[in-house]
């Protein structure tokens, strides 16, 4: 049995709380919008680091993005990851989730050839910009990894037996699942808390060499599967949510006290929604 090897996929995203839309052109105004590691990916990274600390081995972080995404990788190294791979190539521009999973899956395979096959690939639950939660399952299908999504807790890892047990968030409850390695896990938010990296890690991160791969270096020969060409979906139209035509009807205040205003409001509610009134009356009369 070799040492544990974990790959964590992280994405650099614009801090969406700070995004502005050009009022005329409906384009994203990026000026002054800081980028961050996709917050959900930090839960994946921390889960990976905890397993590494417990079992030994190494954590490789992987991102596909523009050259400046290197920043996020350095951050991940400062938290304690062991090595980082930046997958960057103009050929990847315009990738939808299918093309993204192709590139990332190829890179994971290449990472396997270079540093040993990963036992677990971690992803975040979803990104805050793409917001699809599709990339994790896509990588799993392409690499035929056993797929564990929305994982709240890794309850057991048995490297000897190549087995893993998790608690998975399902509809209306928690599923307890066991499966075999290699597996792909997407972590749920709130499942752990990102550590403060040590000064030694921070220093190492600042000085680390980051592995940068273009498509060819990642072993991708067929560029038809990448970028716009490899994307079955296209964005036909981008637009701002329309404003409603009618603004809210305001309850007159007329210097009345709160109780009078509330009674007026109640009447208006019942006039507009007689069904609500009927339901409430039925409830009140105890039926």
């Amino acid at each position: 049995m070799g040492a544990l090897h974990i790959v964590v996929c992280i994405k650099q995203v614009p801090d969406s709380a700070q995004i502005r839309v050009h009022p005329i052109y409906n384009t994203i105004m990026r000026q002054g919008v800081p980028t961050i590691i996709n917050p959900y990916d930090l839960f994946a990274l921390e889960a990976a680091l905890q397993l590494r600390d417990q079992f030994g081995g190494a954590v490789t972080v992987l991102t596909m993005g523009p050259p400046m995404a290197e920043e996020s990788l350095r951050k991940a190294l400062a938290f304690g990851a062991d090595r980082a791979v930046l997958l960057t190539d103009r050929a990847f521009a315009g990738s939808d989730t299918l093309a993204t999973t192709f590139a990332l899956a190829s890179a994971v395979s290449k990472i396997g050839e270079t540093w040993g096959t990963p036992d677990i690939v971690f992803c975040g639950k979803q990104t805050i910009d793409g917001d699809t939660a599709q990339v994790g399952p896509g990588i799993a299908s392409r690499l035929e990894l056993n797929q564990l999504t929305y994982v709240a807790k890794i309850s057991k890892l048995d490297l000897e037996a190549g087995a893993i047990e998790v608690e998975r968030r399902a509809e209306g409850g928690t599923q307890l699942l066991s499966t075999k390695l290699p597996a792909l896990v997407t972590m749920l938010e709130g499942s752990n808390e990102m550590r403060r990296g040590s000064l030694a890690c921070a220093l190492a991160a600042a000085q680390a060499e980051i592995t940068v791969w273009n498509a060819a270096a990642a072993g991708i020969e067929d560029l038809l599967n990448c970028g716009l060409k490899g994307s079955p979906t296209i964005v036909k139209k981008v637009f701002a949510p329309g404003a409603h035509t009618v603004r809210a009807q305001q309850i007159e205040l007329q210097d009345r006290n709160a109780d009078d205003i509330a009674r007026d409001l109640l009447d208006q509610i019942f006039i507009r929604q007689p069904q609500v009134e009927a339901d409430l009356m039925r409830m009140a009369s105890g039926q």
């Binding site: 699809t132 399952p137 399902a170 979906t233």
Partner: peptide
């Protein structure tokens, strides 16, 4: 749902077709 998203991602990738979320 958690089930639907888990399944849709795998099926779309297996079929190599497009999938639009949410």
């Amino acid at each position: 749902t958690t089930l639907g998203r888990d399944l849709a991602g795998s099926v779309a990738t297996t079929l190599r077709t497009g999938l639009t979320a949410d």
